[in-house]
């Protein structure tokens, strides 16, 4: 058993164009997917992220809006999921609604101490 970080990227540009009805439908899919993970005891943590952020480099000498401030590369949220293996984590991520609007999931195993 390990914990895995799911980073959700992209899709927001399309999503904000949706009608209220479509947005609600999309939200309900996320709710159902996460609810399922929670019930199965696989959901450790997770939060959505604001799209605005900064990238700080050189101890603050360089502060930019970051390479990911626009478009498909924006990280919209993260989850920490527990799974037997990377393959099992990938399997879990396949049910995620992020792919509906061209978004993707980056999955990283969290190192254990």
């Amino acid at each position: 058993m390990s914990n895995f970080l799911f980073l959700f990227r992209g899709g927001d540009a399309q999503r904000i164009q949706q009608s209220p009805e479509e947005m609600q439908a999309h939200m309900e899919k996320w709710g159902a997917w996460m609810g399922g993970l929670k019930e199965a005891g696989k959901l450790v943590d997770g939060l959505p992220l604001n799209k605005d952020g900064k990238v700080v480099e050189k101890a603050g000498d360089v502060i930019t809006d970051g390479p990911f401030a626009e478009g498909a590369e924006v990280v919209g949220g993260y989850l920490i999921v527990t799974a037997d293996s990377l393959d099992a984590a990938i399997e879990i991520s396949k049910g995620c609604p992020i792919y509906e609007h061209g978004g993707n999931t980056e999955i990283r195993e969290i190192m254990s101490m």
Binding site: R15, I16, W30, M34, L47, P48, G76
Partner: peptide
């Protein structure tokens, strides 16, 4: 209004 719905869509499944 659109942004608020968008925000709800992103936050509510988590919280």
């Amino acid at each position: 209004v659109q942004e608020s719905l968008f925000k709800a869509m992103k936050i509510w499944p988590f919280k």
